[in-house]
């Protein structure tokens, strides 16, 4: 079985976000980056299928040189090889441009299963997975919290609203996007990190994927990104911890809860 896991590198969860001078994205000059949380769970799900039997796990990502670090991390966790798509044509690309590039990788690799995160923690579109499925002619399910593999199909639980789950069976090959919390994500072991250095990592351009720059040109452009306008918001209490606590106690008494 061959599994393709599509990863995105995103700013660290706790990174301070500043808007870049051009006003259309954040200033990423001095940011720490990490693997998108949702994608970590997708990678873990793939590695668990590998652990349970015979599977080759390929990780793919798109981005500048810094994303190689995330691919090495994924290889350290247990993925077998990596594909890095690097091309100026993909700077500022939208979900569809990304999905088209990944679809070209999928066409070259013919995986039995494609896994990726439900969405990215930066732009929060949640589109790449279903787009990649459509472009690759695969059935898909989004936001899964469990995955059982049996023979030529997988059975997954999709998370709906309010604690409801939808059980869906998909014939392979298929694509699923993973919700956070699906599993417990492993850390790369020291041994894993050492081995990762010797694992194959290919770098490809858009042309290597049989695409032209115009194929991946964005249909969605960010005109402006900005701090959300502050509403009235909360009344912020001032003072020492003891003073603030007294004010809170007064409020809790007013509410009749103390």
């Amino acid at each position: 079985m061959k599994i393709l896991v599509c990863l995105k590198q995103v700013p660290h969860k706790d990174a301070r976000l500043d808007i870049a001078g051009h006003g259309t994205w954040i200033d990423d000059a001095n940011l720490k980056f990490e693997i998108n949380d949702y994608d970590n769970y997708a990678l873990e799900a793939a590695l668990r299928i590998k652990d349970a039997g015979e599977a080759e796990v390929i990780v793919a990502t798109i981005g500048p040189d810094r994303v190689v670090q995330s691919l090495r991390t994924a290889l350290g966790m247990g993925a077998d090889r990596a594909v890095h798509v690097k091309d100026e044509a993909l700077e500022g690309s939208d979900s569809l441009g990304v999905a088209k590039s990944l679809a070209a990788i999928a066409a070259q690799e013919s995986p039995d299963l494609i896994l990726t995160g439900l969405m990215s923690d930066d732009a929060n579109y949640g589109l790449t997975g279903p787009m990649l499925a459509e472009l690759s002619g695969l059935p898909h399910a989004t936001g899964i919290v469990s995955c059982e593999h049996a023979g030529e199909s997988i059975t997954v639980e999709r998370e709906l609203e309010g604690g409801a789950l939808e059980v869906v069976e998909l014939p392979l090959p298929a694509l699923v996007t993973v919700q956070t919390g699906m599993n417990e994500v492993r850390y790369a072991s020291l041994k894993g990190i050492m081995q990762a250095k010797k694992k194959p990592l290919e770098t490809k351009s858009v042309a290597d994927l049989g695409l032209q720059a115009s194929d991946v040109a964005p249909k969605v452009t960010i005109e402006k990104i900005y701090m959300p306008p502050k509403g009235e918001g909360a009344e912020i209490l001032q003072g020492s911890a003891a003073e603030v606590s007294q004010q809170l106690v007064t409020k809790i008494k007013e509410l009749g809860l103390l």
């Binding site: 569809l96 579109y125 949640g126 459509e134």
Partner: peptide, 23 residues
């Protein structure tokens, strides 16, 4: 932007080669 909406929006956009904004 519900479990149905996010399951379908990307699939439709890719099929129609159209731009899509979510959430």
């Amino acid at each position: 932007n519900t479990p149905i909406g996010w399951d379908l929006a990307g699939k439709l956009a890719a099929a129609l080669d159209a731009g899509v904004a979510t959430d």
